[in-house]
Design a protein around this nucleic acid. Structure first.
Length: 954
DNA sequence: TCTCTGCCCAGAGGA
């Protein structure tokens, strides 16, 4: 039977004499969550456990045997122990599993498979058996490559995570050969595959200075060896192959993608050489990880195959050694258990937030090719390290900064891991309710595509929403993302009918969001680069050791708005950085565009970035409008724009097809194509626009800029801002810290943006744009007084006086008197719902009808609510062409009329109302009319909302 | 259960 629970106290380790001699044991006090054949193993709820039908994994079979031998039945004892699970139960871990016990701390999760029940002084206990695996924090999914790196050296694993892997040819070639291998397994023609795969990586190859022909030849050499070996196998035996399978083990807490699975056993491809008889140890470890994954998915694996393709390209006379590419080895239980113990050590360290020293492993530093890097990082970060330290440690404030942000980023990572665990810990319905899955789909068809991939189609049977979008990676399954038949797929189209592509066919009935650590990884690397690779002068300024400097610029860039003009001057003249504070409607996007144009005219190369694709595209559009004036004069309609002097300005948007807005597609840099051509396109671009996440990509990290301009900077974490700023000599941040802060999963230091910190630290390095072009004077008053010290004013009399009367066919006189003022309040007591309010929704529907009757277009009206639930409630009451959304999603846009639903009865409770920046955003979206709908008693209970009420009713 | 965007996934290799 399997035992699962939470460590409830200190672990006691001792050595005892047994009939086999001396043995180690560790006694773990465990608060038991589940005991049984299935529920405990998977950590699933009892209800979920019942739905599992295939009890076919080998460990289950063994588990059953042990339970029978003991004469006890896991299923029945489960209920008994769950009921009195408050008192910790002692679980004894024997022999080598005591190693894993060493990492246990109270509060950690522990799983013991195939445990035996024990009576000791009238108390029920559990102990490991010969078949047991002990898994520490099983819900923390560790990557196979992470385990592989960790086994090589824990410090190497850490360095990889911290500094990332830069673009280099061996890695790109290795990836290409793997892709071709996958294609061959799916039956694609070799020559065709090579051409297609090399073409797809045109941009990267170009950056590496490679030509398509040379790379294709190199890949062909390796791939031909594989092809030959595959042919041999086909001739001699009935092979069943599966390529590139993503596997998740909820028992062992491992995830990974096997290159190939042949007759149920893993095959790993390596592009390097190995002249020894045996595979390298770390390669065996990798294969063993896949074996564990495959066992959980119903296999029984006792061999692994390593394929060293370079072996077959070597000449006999070059070296004496074993030149056969394929090396098979048998996988014993000892290796599998070793791998699990290593995984435990890694998981425990990650969960505790510790940093490895290298002493955990046995690798010899003098043989390590990362020795120098390791010593430098250890030295500069003042970390204990087996390799030793070189260089001077960073100043204390920088070390403190590193630790603070490392901790914060790792907390974010653990949140991502919790998302993985929900794949099996939550039921399908819970996942769907959480918008993380689309369930109950009707499978329509599968179709093999050219190149061996598959197109899958399914239809929705309900109108349920989810956060899944086109271009996303999802787990497509025939029922369960982890236990069922499941493939990593890409959403190609998402209407009532859903179109996906995947490597292998699945009869899709369910789609789950596949969480990604990518953003977290990039934040960590960005912080590392800032502290360890960055410019000393920048650090002096950002750590308050030197003041930011500005070159005086006399030129007038914008002649009817002093603050905007000053902002452009500061942006252009900044030696270090400049800050542009742009409250709602103050033309910050225009100001950015003007500043970029000025920089480009000075011959500078500019990076334009923001957190979201939408913000990047908005800013890019404004820039194109500026330089676009000249195109129209010249009649040049191409992505190459011309500047004021008639010189070509090359603008490139870097991003994925699904991320970039359709009208910016002509500017998007396609990654595939001829390497020389691709790289020229990027290197010649004077303006490159990309999200901050993309700025952390290998391709973007090869680029250098004079200036980085970051829009919506108040919504970026500090490391996120570095991702863009690291690529440039100086930077300009544009944003408004009185609007919404960065979105982070955990409560931590990431919630304050670099923008806000610098505004506080160096107010003189910034300008606030104080003229707004959006709101009627009456609408603007509250936000101006409450959030901008009364500094925000209408840019022109026309703006101050704008009303609905200005719109064609609209007359305020036909509105009821209470709606004629630009700001009105509609008191609705509400239905007392927590996250919805049907009465408010109904009232809002009436209001929309009233506005329509007065001649307003429905598309001119927007409705804002604090909760997603209320957004869908309102959507049920109002026509489709009225935009209804959360505050968060309305940021950055505006409407003629905005109706705000407060969704609170009696009191204002909950964190959503505590952040006043959210009301600032909601109240500053309208141009001509704002209607607040809510319960006046609730609103009056908070001083800020009370002032808002007084203003609205005045 | 408060809000929620990014990112071709994970792994690719050197000695």
């Amino acid at each position: 039977m399997h035992v699962r629970g939470t460590v409830a106290g200190e672990v006691e380790t001792k050595t005892v004499s047994t009939s086999y001699g001396e043995s180690d044991l560790a006694e773990v006090p465990l608060r038991i969550a589940a005991v049984g054949d299935e529920a405990a193993r998977t950590g699933a709820t009892t209800r979920d456990a019942g739905s599992i039908t295939d009890g076919g994994t080998s460990s289950d079979a063994e588990g059953g045997t042990i339970a029978d031998a003991d004469g006890s039945d896991g299923g029945t004892s489960a209920g008994a122990h769950l009921a009195d699970g408050h008192e910790p139960t002692t679980v004894t871990l024997w022999n080598k599993w005591t190693e894993s016990a060493d990492y246990l701390e109270p509060g950690m999760e522990l799983l013991v498979t195939d445990a035996a029940e024990d009576e000791y002084q009238g108390e029920t206990r559990y102990k490991t058996t010969g078949d047991s695996y002990v898994v520490v924090e099983p819900s923390f999914l560790v990557n196979v490559t992470s385990i592989r790196n960790w086994v090589e050296c824990p410090r190497l694993y850490y360095l990889n995570k911290l500094s990332g892997v830069p673009l280099n040819y061996p890695v790109v070639k290795g990836t290409l050969v793997h892709e071709v291998f996958g294609d061959l397994l799916r039956g694609r023609d070799l020559a065709e595959s090579i051409d297609a795969r090399v073409d797809e990586r045109g941009l990267e190859l170009g950056l590496l200075g490679e030509t398509a022909d040379a790379v294709a030849e190199d890949v062909r050499e390796n791939a031909t060896a594989i092809e030959g070996w595959l042919e041999q196998g086909r001739l001699t035996e009935e092979d069943s192959w599966r390529s590139e399978q993503l596997l998740i083990s909820e028992t062992f807490g491992i995830r990974g993608r096997a290159d190939a699975v042949r007759r149920g056993a893993p095959v790993e491809l390596k592009t390097g050489k190995n002249l020894k008889k045996e595979p390298r140890f770390k390669d065996k470890v990798q294969a063993a990880c896949y074996a564990l994954l495959l066992e959980e998915h119903g296999g029984d694996v006792d061999t692994g195959t390593l394929l060293y393709t370079k072996n077959s390209t070597l000449k006999r006379n070059e070296e004496t050694g074993d030149l056969t590419p394929a090396k098979e080895f048998s996988m014993g239980e000892g290796l599998l258990k070793f791998v699990v113990r290593q995984r435990n050590e890694l998981a425990a360290m990650e969960v505790a937030g510790d940093i490895p020293t290298g002493y955990e492993g046995s690798a010899k530093c003098e043989y390590c090719f990362e020795q120098d890097t390791c010593m430098v990082v250890s030295g500069r970060l003042d970390q204990e390290s087996k390799a030793g330290q070189i260089g001077q440690a960073l100043p204390d404030e920088e070390l403190e900064y590193f630790e603070r942000f490392y901790r914060a980023i790792e907390e974010e990572r653990r949140e991502v891991h919790r998302e993985y665990a929900k794949l099996w810990e939550q039921s399908a319905q819970e996942r769907a309710d959480d918008d993380r899955a689309l369930i109950d789909l009707e499978f329509l068809e599968k179709r093999e595509l050219e190149g061996g991939r598959w197109e899958l189609r399914a239809r929705r049977t309900s109108g349920a929403n989810s956060k899944i979008r086109e271009g996303d990676f999802v787990l497509a399954s025939d029922g369960h993302p982890v236990r069922g038949n499941s493939e990593l797929a890409i959403i190609e189209r998402l209407d009532d009918e859903i179109v996906l592509t995947a490597d292998e066919p699945v009869e899709v009935t369910r789609l789950d969001v596949y969480p990604s650590e990518l953003t977290t990884d990039r934040l960590l690397v960005a912080m590392h680069d800032f502290l360890l690779k960055g410019d000393e002068r920048r650090k002096d300024v950002l750590f308050g050791r030197a003041d930011p400097e500005f070159e005086t610029v006399e030129e007038t860039f914008i002649d009817n708005n002093d603050a905007q003009n000053e902002a452009v001057r500061m942006a252009v003249g900044a030696e270090d950085f400049a800050l542009i504070h742009g409250p709602p409607g103050t033309g910050k996007t225009y100001t950015i565009a003007r500043a970029i144009r000025a920089m480009v005219e000075r011959g500078e190369r500019v990076l334009l970035s923001a957190f979201t694709n939408r913000a990047v595209d908005n800013a890019l559009e404004a820039l194109l409008d500026q330089i676009g004036d000249v195109i129209e004069e010249d009649g040049v309609a191409s992505p190459t724009q011309r500047n004021g002097d008639g010189e070509a300005v090359d603008v490139v948007r870097v991003g994925s097809e699904s991320g970039v807005r359709d009208d910016m597609e002509p500017y998007r840099l396609e990654r595939s194509g001829n390497p020389e051509d691709r790289v020229a396109k990027l290197q010649n671009a004077q303006v490159v626009a990309a999200t901050t996440a993309t700025c952390g990509s290998r391709v973007m990290k090869e680029q250098a800029f004079d200036v980085a301009l970051v829009d919506e900077a108040a919504q970026l974490t500090e490391p996120g801002t570095h991702a863009a700023a690291n690529l440039a000599e100086r930077f300009v941040l544009v944003g408004d810290h009185e609007q919404l802060p960065p979105v982070v999963r955990a409560e931590n230091d990431l919630t304050e943006s670099l923008f806000e910190r610098l505004v506080d630290l160096y107010p003189e390095a910034g300008v606030m744009l104080d003229r707004q072009y959006r709101m009627n004077q009456r609408i603007q008053v509250f936000a101006s007084n409450e959030f901008y010290d009364g500094q925000l004013r209408p840019a022109e009399p026309e703006v101050a006086a704008r009303t609905l009367d200005d719109l064609e066919g609209v007359s305020r006189d036909t509105l009821p008197p209470e709606l004629r003022d630009p700001v009105s309040f509609v008191d609705v007591e509400g239905d007392g719902g927590r996250y919805t309010d049907g009465e408010e929704a109904a009232r809002i529907a009436d209001l929309i009808e009233t506005y329509e009757a007065a001649g307003l277009e429905r598309s001119d009206i927007g409705v804002i609510a604090p909760f997603r639930a209320q957004v869908s409630e309102i959507s049920k009451h109002v026509p489709d062409d009225v935009a209804v959304d959360t505050v968060d999603r309305f940021q950055g846009s505006s409407q003629e009329v905005i109706i705000v639903s407060f969704t609170a009865t009696g009191t204002l409770e909950g964190p959503i109302f505590e952040d006043y920046r959210r009301i600032n955003v909601a109240l500053t979206r309208p141009k001509r009319a704002l209607v607040l709908v809510g319960d006046s008693r609730a609103l009056a209970s908070d001083p800020v909302y009370k002032r808002m009420l007084e203003w609205a009713r005045a």
